[in-house]
């Protein structure tokens, strides 16, 4: 469970084999085709087509306001909640367009979970109930099933050992980093196929950040991950693929090591080398 990350350098110059083997036999779990998001008349994201490969971590990077979060939220129909937002194009989950008529956004969000910038556990619920919330929504009432699912999710989120003796404590009693792992566990309980993470470590201290980064490598065995991050070192450390966004456009997408060492686009290179952003 707590195996070391296969690589620990800040920039992925010396890539580990795991990533190279991943590059073979890749299968897109999600894929967008010409996806655009508008806020009223304003364009948030323009005509983005990119795959998110199964059991990999895909990082979305770019300067503030470049549309990476907007894009991420389009992947599980969170924009449905913003009346002025409008989507064009397709986002496919296992080949099926999640924006097709008749597709239920509620079911889509069950399959595509999300972790947010700031930890947002339900403050009135205990640790246990926070993690079990998703299953309870789905009508699971059996105690043994819930117990098992809660333990499994907390274990996957590497929080079990820290909280197993106080599952009845309020979720808010945890530290910031623990709260974020609690939110990850909460998202994992319903066994999503894809987990979207919107700058999950931006509100956390370096040690908590480290623990969450460690976690991603383990998690991708079970779930496909897309992560928005401001932190390029983080993108380099945790991701297999990276998409670089600028002003609502996807400028470049490719394997992380390739994009970081040999970017095709001048903008990408400028951003990655820190000359811009």
């Amino acid at each position: 469970m707590n195996e070391q990350k296969p690589y620990s350098v800040s920039l992925p110059t010396g890539q580990s084999e795991t990533k190279l083997t991943l590059a073979e036999g890749l299968r897109p779990r999600m894929e967008t085709r010409g996806l655009s998001v508008y806020y009223g008349k304003k364009m948030g994201v323009r005509n983005v087509s990119m795959p998110i490969y199964a059991n990999t971590v895909t990082a979305l990077i770019g300067p503030s306001g470049c549309g990476k979060t907007t894009f991420l939220r389009a992947l599980n129909r969170m924009h449905d909640l913003t009346p002025i937002a409008r989507i064009e194009g397709e986002a496919l989950l296992d080949g099926q367009n999640i924006y097709a008529p008749g597709v239920d956004a509620v079911e889509i969000r069950r399959k595509i979970g999300m972790v947010f910038q700031k930890p947002n556990p339900f403050p009135t619920l205990t640790i246990y109930d926070n993690v079990a919330a998703g299953l309870k929504l789905m009508g699971v009432r059996r105690r043994d099933v819930l117990d098992e699912a809660v333990e499994r999710s907390l274990t996957q989120a590497v929080l079990w050992d820290e909280v197993k003796d106080r599952l009845r404590a309020p979720g808010m009693s945890l530290s910031g980093g623990q709260q974020q792992r609690l939110c990850i566990a909460r998202a994992l309980t319903v066994q999503p196929e894809v987990l979207l993470m919107d700058e999950p470590t931006s509100a956390l201290d370096p040690i908590s950040t480290q623990s969450i980064e460690d976690l991603l490598t383990e998690l991708k065995k079970h779930v496909t991950i897309a992560i928005v991050t401001h932190n390029m070192q983080q993108a380099g450390r945790v991701s297999d693929f990276t998409g670089y966004f600028l002003l609502g456009d996807l400028i470049e997408f490719g394997p992380t090591n390739q994009l970081f060492t040999n970017p095709k686009d001048a903008h990408t290179e400028a951003y990655i080398t820190g000359r811009f952003g």
């Binding site: 599980n76 969170m78 909640l81 509620v106 079911e107 889509i108 969000r109 069950r110 399959k111 979970g113 999300m114 972790v115 947010f116 700031k118 947002n120 556990p121 339900f122 403050p123 919330a133 998703g134 929504l137 789905m138 939110c183 909460r186 998202a187 319903v190």
Partner: peptide
């Protein structure tokens, strides 16, 4: 963020109101 947390778990609108 509380509403979004519930939505992201696959809650219906009423469930978001009731639970979050």
């Amino acid at each position: 963020a509380q509403r979004e947390a519930a939505y992201a778990l696959g809650a219906t609108k009423w469930e978001v109101i009731k639970n979050a």
